[in-house]
Design a protein around this nucleic acid. Sequence first.
RNA 1: GUCCCUAUCGUCUAGAGGCCUAGGACAAUACCCUUUCACGGUAUGAACCGGGGUUCGAAUCCCCGUGGGGACGCCA
Length: 464
Amino acid sequence: MSVVRTRFAPSPTGFLHIGGARTALYSWAYARHHGGQFILRIEDTDVARSTPEAVQAIIDGMAWLGLEHDEGPFYQMQRMDRYKEVIGQMLAAGTAYYCYTSREELDALRAEQEAKKEKPRYDGRWRPEVGKTLPPLPEGVQPVVRFKNPTDGVVAWDDVVKGRIEIANAELDDLIIARADGTPTYNFCVVVDDWDMGISHVIRGDDHVNNTPRQINILKALGATVPQYGHLSMILGDDGTKLSKRHGAVSVMQYDEDGYLPEAVLNYLARLGWSHGDDEVFGMAQFIEWFDLDHITASAAQFNTEKLNWLNQQYLKAASDSYLAGEVARRLAPRGIDPEQGPSLEAVVALYKDRAVNLNELADAVEPLLVEIHPTAEMIETHLTEAARAALAQLRERLVAVEWEKAAISQAIKETCTALGMKMPQVAIPLRVALLGLPQSPAIDAVLAVLGRETVLARIGRFL
RNA sequence: GUCCCUAUCGUCUAGAGGCCUAGGACAAUACCCUUUCACGGUAUGAACCGGGGUUCGAAUCCCCGUGGGGACGCCA
């Protein structure tokens, strides 16, 4: 069996978004599954729209997700000589030709065809044919180079996700492979790159299905081996419409900012458009073991933030306290909070990680344990009644002497309840408000234990 | 307009002719657990786009509609 070599080939005209991330993930996982190589290639031939910032954004996104490549990044702009070399060969071999049709003529042709409700396409006026007389060479027109596409028969391939696809050559026109300024175009560069880089499986977005027959024809004209193709359907936004700036078409780094763990995003993406029976929660090692291009869904999938949230929560619960403490500290820093002060961040995070959906929520939840709190007047009025304050006063006295660990603290709270004939919540809720400014928290004895005696006594003391 | 792809609960999906009284997960609802809020547990409701075939038998195969998406650039 031959070596598996896959690639991810984004054009650096924006950040790495969720659709691109899934394409990269599948290509990466397929290579890993087969012990092959995963190549990163930057398709930057559109000089006007490509930016170094976008290149960096893509690399950052890949790094955040942990999709490391084995070769590259290769930049198409650095491979110009090679493309020109191949174009020269094709011109010489007669599989490509110069076309002197101007942009204006092309526009007119297109308009005419559209008016007649026809599929717009080049009419082959400069295509050399035996016994055909070409038009006279116009003055001052720099020619483009067009590929001489076969006119009959069909191009067919067995798409690994969509099955057999056949397209009649009659549907295809002679595409431009080099612009008037000599620079090669996308469909041509892809072909040369996939060929030169020995790509065995091209896994890419659905929007490239129509490019595939053209690329196969060029590959064949070059005498190159045609790789396997797999076209992934697109990802729709939360509302079922195409991803746009407003919903979902955001950088994967936005997910970091929104408090998602890369593991959760990866797991979510793996399951969006692919399945392994009823399995839902699995790490990348497991995914690599399972993933094999079977079971990829052919139809478009709608992004569902709620399920991502649920997955993120699962990963949050499973994550280690030290990892979470690091992530939370990173989010607390911009708020001017130094987690070195106060109780151990790991202990605090452990208390809250079961109840947060994302890291930002976790940071929010943890904050009152780390900084001075300011309960609202309303909160104080509703919860810190005379009776409540009396209970807190008595509890405080017990806490002064008690051994500082959960069971003993719990015992002290219970004794206070009994002594005053109060129910647990009647003491616990005011206590929460006094300590955290909130009526809800994890188990109160655990909160006290983590907060430390000094802080607890001081915070209760403020209301006596 | 032409070509290509696609169609199972609200969403992601299982399903490769009988295992389907269509399964799981998210979301929803109810109950349980609970010291509050969560977590967790249990249960309930919820789908094969329509029409024709093929077959003893179709969610699964074929055809036609319809819906959705994509492509038709000297963009990638």
